[in-house]
Design a binder for these strands. Structure first.
Lengths: 151, 151
DNA sequence: ATACTATAGTTGCACTGGCAACTATCGGAG
DNA sequence: CTCCGATAGTTGCCAGTGCAACTATAGTAT
């Protein structure tokens, strides 16, 4: 028989949900206002910028940005149209496509990043002591690692 | 000049985003499968069940479930159609409407709750020591309290 | 080589959610 | 009492997302 959360655990869970909703909402609006960039676009730019060659396969990118592959296809469509990324053929596997950062994409990221990171600090990190940040990371990575794999 | 997150703080933030996405995704699917109930519906049922009279004004309910009032109108439409809640007139303020739990709604909640709470335990609480749960709650409530008020 | 199964990515469709505009009502100022 | 700004809720419209179905290609067994 599995346990259910006790009062303290349930309160933590609810705070987790509420904090996530509010903080992402705030950051989304700030980023939109400061750089005209939705949070999902920023996330894609970051993932590409951090990758080896500045490009990733759709499948890997979808995993990284927590979006279904269908959703990512549309997101990349929009970002291609905006000139921030470009699709490239994959020679070694002709089913695949790369999504690559363009110069404009890299520039948009570098323009948006300082304000966004300042927002992450102000609305999130500022409320954590160094020990709490480390504890939070450890706990949440444990939670994450325990999730059932998708597909 | 505002700070930006250091490496540990950024890792905590990313773990926060990823853990939220994965855990809610898992719980959503489990609840849907076990009770045919989207997470948003469950949340509405819980809020109403915990309220004084088993009913709330749209405005208050919208705040509680982290949804815009427009979004809530549609959600309540669907739940009314399903018979889980009913709209009631508000005598003291004729602009307002109450949303009230029906018998079917209360029953759906009580049928869904055990499995859902077990899921919250399994996918979230189980990975927290009592001290960590308490620390997490405190930190996240502090983060939450610091958010700019909406409207 | 052939066939069979698995995987990468895209598309049709339906659903959900937000914004802005709208109606109805409230509450205070003159 | 009347007007006027504020508030509650709904609706039109549109953007974003997932699921399932589809096409194309890869990998594997015979």
């Amino acid at each position: 028989m599995t346990r259910t959360p006790n009062a303290a655990e349930l309160a933590a869970w609810r705070a987790f949900l509420a904090a996530h909703a509010r903080v992402t909402e705030t950051l989304e609006k700030e980023l939109e206002e400061a750089a005209g960039l939705p949070l999902g676009w920023y996330d894609v730019l970051v993932q590409l910028d951090e990758s080896e060659a500045g490009r990733l396969r759709m499948h890997d990118l979808a995993r990284a940005v927590l979006l279904s592959r269908a959703g990512l296809t549309r997101l990349v469509d929009r970002m291609c149209a905006a000139g921030l990324v470009a699709r490239e053929a994959c020679e070694s596997d002709r089913r695949g496509r790369f999504v690559a950062l363009t110069a404009a994409g890299r520039e948009a990221l570098h323009r948006a990043a300082p304000a966004h990171l300042a927002g992450v600090y102000e609305h999130f990190s500022a409320h954590l002591s160094p020990a709490q940040a480390e504890s939070l990371r450890a706990v949440l990575e444990r939670v994450l690692a325990a999730q059932p794999l998708r597909h």
